[in-house]
Design a protein around this nucleic acid. Structure first.
Lengths: 347, 347
DNA sequence: ATTGTCCGGGAGAGCGCTCTCCTACGTGGT
DNA sequence: ACCACGTAGGAGAGCGCTCTCCCGGACAAT
């Protein structure tokens, strides 16, 4: 029974009711220029009495601002929501953590995030066209598509954009990221501190900056700790990959007593394998993960891991984007967050 | 170096370039009425040549449609994104599964979901005011706040709304849900079929419809299987609650050989307790969860669970909402989905 | 007094689009 | 031949808002 929209009050209505002009009401509503306090009061009462709320479309039309930003997830081509791949992306808690972080900054400013998905080259171009047509003020881009063209396309279109994680190829674009290498170093320090002597690592895919950096950072740190060679296997950032890598590692290096696993999901898999093979964690083999995702507390023993402050990073993305929108001439900036080691049970 | 917006092509520009009137271009772009095929072609070429994309704000202003819907998450008061509670909400993979499902329907229709959060009574009222100002066509509401006022407020405001899960109090509002009782029955059937004789259950909170229904459904099914009394403990739908409940259950009923746990998160906790106490799953105690969330595949043994088709449900919500928006006089409707038992290792 | 300055308020153009009219032009029936 | 009717395209009125421009009055400086 949706009562067919009974025409909502407009500025005009409020103006008439308050006995002033439309312009004055607009000034009061938007808090621009000086308005006599008495008139302000009258207008505010009229607003309350009529139940007036500004029409965003009309406002956008003239201001060329929509007070909404796109939250774009860019994923490899030809995956739909029913595909296992995309399903995994969206079902990753990380998605929700980003949203939560963004909202802490966006909501107080009355800016709404609009969800968008770029899952094909066509979609990417269409997206840019849509965004250019000024119905969106800026873009928060989370890209997990290797060699994604969107960062470039958006830069080229001159759209205010902030990336989650450093772009694969250098680009004049703002982003937030974590100090990956320093994070890996925290893991190394922990394992060494525990007294582990034969330390190995399960790495992420080599074509991802995060995978590379964590591996490099870990190796560097271990070298400084006097261990020149670190056995490593690639686990593809998946749970199954982690299991497989752990098995391989133990086969080739049965005396391993400490493992740095480049993300929690793989660590979860590794823990399962260790238990199946009868190795006690952390006593026989200590394990350190990365991310501090929900997997870290779903596992037994609880996972010691390097925490990535996703919510804070997302909030900062929102701040950077707002600044970029307010002042288009602004320099692009990057903000790098420090990770923290969360010590639980596995190391 | 954001090149300060170089004024984008408008309908007028396209019209001039094609040598026709604005109205004709509009007709071609929107595919309304009959337009001479030849002129259609000319206009389409002009559109391509100028790179024209409709301005949504201008269009919305006159059509009173925005082609965007709100995706509202309504949560209990006084929780912010940094609070553990809300953090958990947003980090629950379920959030992303909803979004994924919605997008499969919304995207092809060019409708965008706008994320909103209602975390206080003020926020709820403000939300309704915002939505009423016609800058949003409809609402997809996921409420996890007990006694939430939003379903009522939205109905009252005459806003097209679709709920995820049956509202706590009866209301003329569309919703999707699953056949909770039938789902619980599937779990019961499985446990009985495996030969379990002393079956118990860990339930969700009694103030949630899902918690109630699953418990009632399970009891009914067990009664039909000849077991009149089912020991049960409440686990609050959390992992810790599940652990605690499992411990309690085993203390009071040490000979339990099968457990239905009303969600996967609690089941995860239960599995940990069972292992700690040296009970083999599924041989000593069989466990069936509910939801088929990511926890189900993160556990060892892999969790046998009742699958809730969240993506399909979300897609249906989108369909219901679109129908409601297109025809406001439409009846409110509910769609109940069947669950499926996913047999893995734990039962 | 006269001029200049500031400041509060109103008038009105126009953002880019849709959609209702209206006109011009066939086409068919009588 | 005439009129009725259908059909394709144009003209133009807004949708609700912001913002520039303008005006009138208060006040200070000359």
């Amino acid at each position: 029974m949706t009562s067919s929209r009974p025409r909502l009050p407009t500025l005009e209505d409020v103006a008439r009711s308050a006995g002033v002009s439309r312009a004055t009401v607009s000034r009061v509503v938007n808090g621009t220029r000086n308005v006599d306090p008495e008139i302000q009061r009258i207008v505010q009462e009229a607003v309350a009495a009529t139940g007036y709320v500004p029409n965003r479309a009309a406002r956008s039309l003239v201001t060329r601002r929509t007070d909404s930003v796109a939250l774009v997830f860019s994923v490899p081509d030809h995956h739909t929501a029913n595909d296992p791949f995309l399903g995994r992306v969206f079902s990753d808690p990380f998605f929700g953590r980003i949203v939560g972080g963004l909202l802490t900054v966006l909501r107080p400013r009355g800016v709404h995030p609009v969800l968008m998905l770029a899952d094909s080259e066509d979609a990417r171009h269409e997206l840019v066209a849509n965004l250019r047509q000024e119905h969106i003020d800026g873009v928060v881009l989370v890209s997990i598509a290797p060699g994604d063209s969107l960062p470039f396309l958006l830069t080229e279109a001159g759209l205010p954009t902030v990336l989650f994680a450093r772009p694969t190829t250098p680009l004049p674009i703002s982003f937030v990221d974590i100090a990956q290498q320093a994070g890996a170093r925290q893991a190394a320090d922990r394992l060494v501190e525990r007294g582990c002597r034969r330390i190995a690592t399960i790495s992420g895919p080599f074509d991802s900056p995060a995978g590379q950096d964590r591996l490099a950072g870990f190796r560097n740190a271990m070298a400084e700790h006097g261990q020149p060679y670190v056995p490593s296997t690639e686990g593809g950032f998946t749970q199954e990959g982690g299991e497989h890598a752990m098995r391989e590692l133990l086969r080739d290096h049965p005396d391993t007593d400490g493992v740095f696993v480049a993300n929690d999901l793989m660590a979860l898999g590794a823990l399962h394998v260790l238990r199946d093979l009868g190795r006690q964690v952390p006593d026989d083999v200590a394990v350190v993960g990365f991310d501090d995702s929900s997997a870290a507390t779903a596992s037994r023993p609880l996972l010691t891991t390097v925490r990535q402050p996703v919510e804070d990073m997302a909030a900062e993305m929102a701040r950077l984007l707002m600044a970029l929108i307010d002042d288009a001439a602004q320099q692009t900036r990057s903000v790098i967050f420090k990770t923290t080691l969360v010590v639980r049970q596995s190391a």
